[in-house]
Computed example of a mutant assay.
Amino acid sequence: MGKVLLVYATMSGNTEAMADLIEKGLIEAQASVDRYEAMDIHAELFNDYEYILLGTYTWGDGDLPDEMLDIAEDMENLEFAGKTFALLGSGDTSYAFFCGAVDELEKVITARGGRVVLPPVKIENNPEGSEEEELREFGRQFAALCRQPAE
Rank of each mutant, 00 (worst) to 15 (best):
A9E: 05
H42R: 06
C99E: 04
I123R: 01
G62Q: 00
A9N: 00
E76R: 15
V121R: 04
F142M: 13
R112L: 10
A150I: 15
A143E: 08
N126W: 14
E128Q: 09
G91C: 02
Q148L: 12
S94E: 12
E131D: 11
R112A: 07
Y57I: 09
I71Q: 07
L135D: 03
S94C: 04
G55F: 02
G82Y: 07
D61P: 13
A81W: 15
E124I: 01
R115S: 08
G25S: 02
D34A: 13
E131M: 10
G89L: 05
L118W: 00
I27N: 03
T15A: 11
N47L: 03
L54D: 00
A144I: 11
G82V: 09
P127V: 15
G114V: 08
Q30G: 14
Y95T: 02
E28D: 12
Q148C: 08
F85L: 05
L105G: 04
I123C: 00
V121L: 10
G100S: 02
F98V: 03
I22F: 05
R136K: 09
G129H: 08
E67I: 10
F46K: 01
D34E: 15
E44L: 15
T10K: 03
L53F: 10
K24V: 06
Y49G: 10
M39Q: 14
E16M: 08
D40T: 11
E151P: 12
V108N: 02
A43P: 02
L145A: 02
R140A: 00
L5N: 00
E73Y: 01
G2T: 14
S90N: 07
E79K: 12
D103G: 11
D61E: 07
E16A: 13
V121N: 04
F85H: 04
V116P: 01
L21M: 12
T10R: 13
E131S: 14
L26W: 01
D103A: 10
A111R: 13
D70V: 14
S12T: 08
D70M: 15
D34Y: 06
E50N: 12
L69N: 12
P119F: 09
V117M: 13
D103C: 07
F80E: 09
D40V: 11
V117F: 10
L5H: 00
G91L: 05
G82W: 08
V4A: 04
E132A: 04
D74W: 06
M18V: 02
A19T: 04
V116M: 09
S12D: 15
